[in-house]
């Protein structure tokens, strides 16, 4: 029983990270229709930047803020230098561009940082808390509440603020949005910035538990994709639920089946979703604009 509880705890922890990554995807997808394969790199940029700043003696919370800023800047640069110049490009070109950007960022991180695996101490110490026979790291609570806070913030931002409504209007019809005076270009910049910030924050929070290195971005992106697809593409609630489910499936696989193949769980989920219910749990029936 306590064993199961332990797996559930670690599943929810990593699940919260995948949920944050999936929320980042959803943000960019809803605003621009682009599936951003470089989403995992934002997580790594956040984690590595924080790790290096902390190693240099920068106070933890300042390092965390700077790491999120670094991720955000990269997100805006990605939009301005790679996505916007190729606007109106066919879908296949956009896939290649974001994949290329993700590989480029991976190489850049290898240059700027190094090839080692990094971590730093949790924000509230390393002493595990005990309850009902299971242990939980204080950092896990940071991750879970952090992801939930991101979800609540994004929900509030998108529905209650002028800027958020601008993004939604741009997403549903760019021309119409521009005609009623919304600065659509700014809305696109903002959605990439927010999405990158969410990714970088996930990296900052998760690195003490999951560790990070320059080359894990693609795997994180894949987990985020499976979360998105399980929950339903385009749905923020779906991203949250999908992320938690993927985390739980993964940790139960590692616990009861084989820890060698825990990363395979995410892929199996993608295949099952595609075979059985392509629109995911919360998604609308998939239709394509022609």
């Amino acid at each position: 029983m306590s064993e199961l509880l332990q797996f559930l705890v670690s599943g929810v922890t990593v699940g919260a990270i995948y949920a944050a990554v999936a929320l980042g995807f959803t943000m960019i997808y809803n605003a621009s229709g682009v599936v951003n394969f470089a989403q995992g790199e934002f997580v790594v940029i956040g984690g590595l930047t924080a790790a290096f700043l902390i190693a240099m003696g920068v106070p933890v919370f300042l390092a965390a803020v700077l790491a999120v800023v670094a991720g955000t800047v990269v997100g805006i640069l990605l939009y301005r230098l790679a996505i916007r110049p190729a606007r109106e490009a066919p879908l296949v070109s956009l896939i290649i561009i974001t994949i290329g950007a993700s590989i480029f960022l991976r190489g850049a991180m290898q240059m700027v940082f190094d090839k080692q695996i990094h971590r730093y101490d949790g924000f509230s110490g390393e002493t595990p808390l005990r309850f009902a026979g299971a242990t939980i790291l204080p950092q896990s609570l940071w991750i879970i509440f952090g992801s939930f806070a991101v979800f609540v913030f994004l929900a509030w931002f998108m529905s209650r603020t002028r800027a958020g409504r601008g993004i939604r209007a741009t997403a549903s019809n760019r021309l119409a949005a521009a005609l009623v005076g919304i600065n659509t270009r700014w809305a696109m910049n903002l959605s990439f910035a927010l999405s990158a910030a969410v990714g970088a924050l996930a990296g900052v929070l998760s690195t003490p538990v999951t560790f990070t290195s320059y080359d894990v971005g693609v795997l994180i992106a894949l987990k985020g994709f499976s979360a998105t697809m399980l929950g339903g593409v385009g749905s923020p609630q779906g991203a949250l639920v999908g992320g938690l489910l993927i985390g739980l499936i993964e940790s139960l696989t590692a616990g009861y089946i084989s820890s060698d193949y825990k990363d395979a769980a995410a892929f199996i989920v993608i295949l099952v979703v595609l075979f059985v219910r392509p629109e995911g749990l919360f998604g609308k029936k998939l239709t394509e604009r022609v």
Binding site: I96, I97, I99, G100, S102, I103, R106, G107, A108
Partner: peptide, 9 residues
């Protein structure tokens, strides 16, 4: 990595 990525983009 950087070369391949830059070539694609």
């Amino acid at each position: 990595h950087m070369i391949l990525g830059a070539v694609m983009v």
